[in-house]
Design a protein around this nucleic acid. Structure first.
Length: 157
DNA sequence: GCCAACGTTGGC
DNA sequence: GCCAACGTTGGC
């Protein structure tokens, strides 16, 4: 089992959107970056994902989601009406892929980006590297543990 | 709203 | 293959 982090703008797709869906599961469509796509293709059923809120008043890790369906063609790329339309991708030769993810649980408290940056053990996370804009990235087992520990520590305050 | 960082595009 | 221009991301 591997660990990942996925970003989302809470207004566009947040925890409430997950809750509104059958089985709390959503297809992760619209990824149009090659590196992020490659990471999604490397995901396996059961992999766990930190769900990160970006471009909002308080950016940070908000929930844990699980990969429930491995990469398959992102058909929104074939739809001229979609904002994710990309004519370079066709059903015969799909260029973009998506996975299905399920909301596992909301964190007891949001782990703010600020707190992540303040953790020496997390200073190598891709998330906090300067200029990082990847929306899907791997997370090490150690980093995963540290983040969840932060959740406990914050709760005790 | 600003702006740094980065990816992509397209002319040459 | 180079690189300038442009668009996007995302924290602040």
């Amino acid at each position: 089992m591997k660990y990942w982090l996925m970003k989302s703008e809470p207004d566009v797709f947040g925890i409430e959107h997950f809750k509104a869906r059958p089985r709390r599961t959503a297809p992760w469509d619209g990824v149009r970056n090659y590196q992020a796509r490659n990471f999604m293709r490397a995901m396996q059923r059961g992999d766990r994902v930190l769900f990160y809120h970006s471009s909002c008043p308080q950016p940070g890790v908000a929930a844990i989601v699980t990969v429930v369906k491995e990469a398959y063609p992102d058909h929104s790329a074939w739809d001229p009406q979609s904002e994710y339309y990309d004519p370079k991708s066709t059903p015969q030769k799909p260029l973009w892929f998506m996975v299905d993810v399920k909301l596992e649980r909301e964190l007891k408290r949001l782990i703010p980006l600020e707190a992540i940056k303040a953790q020496p053990a997390l200073k190598h996370m891709r998330l906090v590297q300067r200029g990082n804009r990847l929306s899907v990235m791997p997370v090490s087992a150690q980093e995963w543990k540290t983040i969840l520990k932060l959740e406990q520590e914050q709760t005790r305050k």
